[in-house]
Design a protein around this nucleic acid. Structure first.
Lengths: 146, 146
DNA sequence: CTGTATCCCAAGGGATACTG
DNA sequence: CAGTATCCCTTGGGATACAG
């Protein structure tokens, strides 16, 4: 699972079967109310913590502090909020083990796992194109500085 | 391009070739600095306006007010900011036509078009699973109300 | 250990008015 | 037409402290 392997995937040659599938996706933007829906889902999936939690849970179930340690950078507050939001949306399943020190396990639901697919694609895109984006930014900023 | 066709795609049977590809994507979360990168890209791509602009531009080049009208709901302010951010990141190309009433054309760059693929996937997921999410929410909220 | 509550600051984002 | 600037309110999100 080396990150460097990410440089390769589908930048110019985007694994045609996948491209195929994407092209088959109707243009949802132009349907009535699509903007609302897109905005809605994005505000859920689009915040970094949700994605990070989902991606972490992809590897297996985790307890609260395991998640906190794994994601690190996230505050208790945000982890708690994020998990409840994900649970509410049915993406994450919360299981309380009524042992002496209470343990709570978080796991992805099937819905959550299905989300991981497009999310990974986006992550892969981000990783693959980050150099291009940063290059573009520095060029832009340099021109601004004239 | 009927929206209803979106109900179908890959909920339980996620178009296996696509699932295949996603599984082939390395787990970027666990590489050093991955969180920062993901968060960074998400804050760019994750805000609804950016996505909406990209998806609108997918159909063809647009002028400022054409975009404003097409997306509707967006303020001048945000459209302006969003376009500049997208331009800075190299996702959108801005062309000024020095005619009498100044016309500015916005178009997707190759990078922008490549982004549209994962973005569409996410949009399709959102649309396909919205019913499940809303169902889950209402169940969750009802239990809260006990 | 697993949270919830409070405080508080910074960023997001709309409305409006003004400029080239 | 294509913006930039200002004002101002809402939301995101961190730190800390407290509770089951």
């Amino acid at each position: 699972m080396d990150v460097t392997t990410l440089e390769a995937p589908s930048l110019e040659a985007p694994s045609l079967e996948a491209a195929d599938r994407a092209d088959a996706v109707p243009d949802i933007v132009h349907s009535p109310g699509a903007c609302r829906v897109i905005g809605d889902i994005l505000s859920r999936v689009g915040d970094k913590w949700s994605m990070l939690v989902v991606m972490t849970l992809l590897e297996g179930d985790r307890h609260f502090n395991e998640l906190k340690r794994a994601i690190d950078g996230i505050s208790q507050q945000m982890l708690s909020r994020t998990l409840r939001a994900l649970e509410r949306d049915g993406l994450v399943v919360r299981t309380v083990h009524a042992s002496v020190p209470v343990r709570v396990e978080y796991a992805l639901s099937d819905l959550g796992r299905s989300l991981s697919r497009p999310v990974k694609e986006l992550g892969a895109w981000a990783f693959a194109n980050r150099p291009a984006i940063e290059e573009s930014r520095s060029v832009f900023d340099r021109r601004e500085g004239d």
